[in-house]
Design a protein around this nucleic acid. Structure first.
Lengths: 262, 262
DNA sequence: TCAAAAGTGTTTGAGATACACCCATGT
DNA sequence: ACATGGGTGTATCTCAAACACTTTTGA
């Protein structure tokens, strides 16, 4: 929604197009500067940041909706995207007064008011999806009602709107448990990466330290990555080797317990 | 819903009481006769069996709704209940003709017809919950529209209505991955149980064999269970010792990797 | 006494963990 | 030359895996 007319149309006709009482919220993980980050957005006249989200079209498959919403925000397709939980317990999801008030501030920018029985004022459950994206590849799309975007370190997430902090917590727990079954790194790193890069990525995700030598040994023993002949120039210091994921091994879920530790 | 009037009221007024487009389906696991089983139900005039399910009241927390539905079916409270996925991709969940036809057969028993724009004819996403119950403790509650209940071995699940086979598959995958983080057995076994019982339970859930000696060693090493002094009389053969879960250890999630294998 | 199920201990090997010194690079 | 980060190998220890005979019980 890039202009005021689109927004007005959405407010007036969205209920015909989208399923009511239901939204999708996306926890978009990216990795940059040795830190695991999440993409947050701030809507017009809102103090708190939120997760990017959207609605499900009436005849759209749920997974397709999540991919569409992600595409609208990041212009990325074919990314790693996974549903992790559906949120419908928080008081904010039972009583809608706060949501209605916030909506009224946001949509004031397009001069529309949200009445008490408007479809956007109704109780809304949210289906949580998390995505792993290559930070560098994301193109933020400006939207009329969105005043700011920010990649925030997972250790410095501020208080967010509604139950979004809870959603992020659950996404992180899920991500951490998936890391031993899937080659998570593949989706967060560029095609070629150095050992220190993937090493510190895993340390960020799991929030603990691993021995450099053992970490490399394990990755190679699993056949997950291959060491290339190239090195990357990093200026002042010794040039580290580049590595790449082995698609055959990285693209299938690991056998039970293949990766239990580093 | 125990009689025709309740059903008629539900069909006519359910849309005021429940959220539209959304249901909860429950995969209820029980253990009996050395086999892991699932509780299925068959509605009036339906050929295929289904998962027990229900709807979410408009101002009811999601978790509360799941517990209520489970209680209505089994009369059990405080059971282990966990959300595992929300289903909205299957074609059956986009196009509702088949669902409407089936509903018309079912509700014919109460002499009500479901029109094309009736709330029960709309596209419905389903939130999947799985429950672990003590088989012996379940009291099946008869319902007007339900013609049969059955505990079915997970290895002999017949083709079910809609995408319910897919829901069960996902529940099983989730259960199997949770077994290493939670003392799953605690919810499926009576308070006191024998080693052969819990041994074969784990074999059923994970669909593989474990060495008796190693299995016992691991359980005791984790402190998960305690051997009691009592034995159980099992007739013709040697009386096995009884065991009980250690609540302090069994009730908290295991540390990462505590239980990676047997 | 026999059939069926339960009880029990030791050995082996794989893999996780711990650990420290040398090398490359630009300033 | 030096500061900074990158590269590499070995020894130990823990724990999973493999394995078979004896005991109990009622018919």
């Amino acid at each position: 929604m890039n202009n005021s007319e689109d927004v007005v149309d959405f407010v007036h006709n969205g209920h015909k197009r989208y399923l009511p009482h239901l939204s999708i919220d996306c926890v978009i993980f990216g990795y940059h500067d040795q830190q695991l980050k999440i993409l947050l957005i701030r809507y017009h006249d809102q103090e708190n940041w939120s997760l990017p989200g959207g609605f499900v079209e009436r005849r759209e498959a749920l997974t397709a909706a999540a991919h569409r919403i992600l595409y609208e925000k990041t212009r990325l397709t074919n990314l790693f995207l996974q549903q992790f939980y559906t949120f419908g317990d928080s008081p904010i999801r039972l009583d809608h007064i706060e949501i209605q008030n916030n909506h009224n501030k946001v949509y004031a920018k397009a001069n529309v008011a949200i009445s008490d029985d408007h479809w956007l004022s109704k109780r809304t459950l949210s289906i949580g999806y998390y995505a792993l994206v290559d930070y560098q590849a994301v193109t933020i799309t400006p939207e009329f009602l969105v005043e700011g975007y920010s990649w925030v370190d997972i250790n410095s997430i501020p208080p967010l709107q509604y139950d979004h902090n809870e959603i992020i917590d659950k996404a992180l727990v899920t991500l951490r448990s998936q890391i031993y079954q899937q080659a998570i790194g593949q989706n967060l790193l560029p095609e070629k990466f150095t050992l220190p890069e993937i090493h510190s990525l895993y340390e960020s995700i799991l929030d603990r330290q691993f021995d450099r030598r053992n970490f490399r040994k394990k990755l190679l023993a699993l056949g997950l990555v291959t060491q290339l002949e190239e090195r990357r120039k990093i200026g002042q210091h010794r040039s580290p080797f580049l590595y790449a994921f082995n698609p055959e091994i990285a693209n299938k879920p690991f056998e039970a317990g293949a990766m239990t530790a580093f």
